[in-house]
Write a protein that binds this DNA or RNA. Sequence first.
DNA 1: CACTCTTGACAATGGTGCTGTCAGGTTTCT
DNA 2: AGAAACCTGACAGCACCATTGTCAAGAGTG
Lengths: 117, 117
Amino acid sequence: MTFRRPDRDPSRPVYVISVAASILSVHPRTLRIYEEEGLVCPARTPTNIRLYSENDVRRIMWIRHLTQNLGVNLAGVRVLFELEERLGTRILERLYTEANGDADAEPVPAANSSARS
Amino acid sequence: MTFRRPDRDPSRPVYVISVAASILSVHPRTLRIYEEEGLVCPARTPTNIRLYSENDVRRIMWIRHLTQNLGVNLAGVRVLFELEERLGTRILERLYTEANGDADAEPVPAANSSARS
DNA sequence: CACTCTTGACAATGGTGCTGTCAGGTTTCT
DNA sequence: AGAAACCTGACAGCACCATTGTCAAGAGTG
């Protein structure tokens, strides 16, 4: 069983790129592109290896939802994320409740969810 | 001379498609596509001819800005407009002040600016 | 040592945005 | 009436984008 340890917080970098890609059913190349586009910012080990946190994964799930389900391109995702951050509001939740009748949706974690200041 | 008559309001349908297209420096075909996509909804004469209002033109200017300057595709524009309408706030103004240092930007008129309920 | 990671480049595929045209028909203006 | 501009629907071309995929040369990990 997985115990709810206090150190299992969603901002902790845990997944190497291959694991994150398999979780998200996405090619690792795609994840690197998202990072080049500034849409995600996974942590790095001292030896420069990407480590995705749970928040990173969830943020990428939002990217996938926006691109695959709503047809928004990466520039549109960038604008939406920037707007959300600028307004400090969970504006994107409205979109989820629009697509399906789901009442509560996961909020979008920040780009640098693992490097919380 | 054109006096500032009270009936010269920006929601009044005035421009036929060729005029609107030349104002916006856009092919008429493009305007029809925007309408097919549900991004603009110009009024029609009783004989089915499109008439764009000043608000329609300004809304299309927003579409052009989002697509040409920010690289957002039409699906992204739809999401942004829908978000703006759903929140009832001028969220897109934030974007304009981001692109250039302009302080005040024109608000985005509603899709059916000429058919105000 | 074998495996996975790094960056950088290159390419194929399918899709999109925009412009443009053609056809057949209707409306408008002179 | 006749010319010009509108309507819809279709088709096409061009350039760009998203995603997947590969290859190479190097570095990290167990």
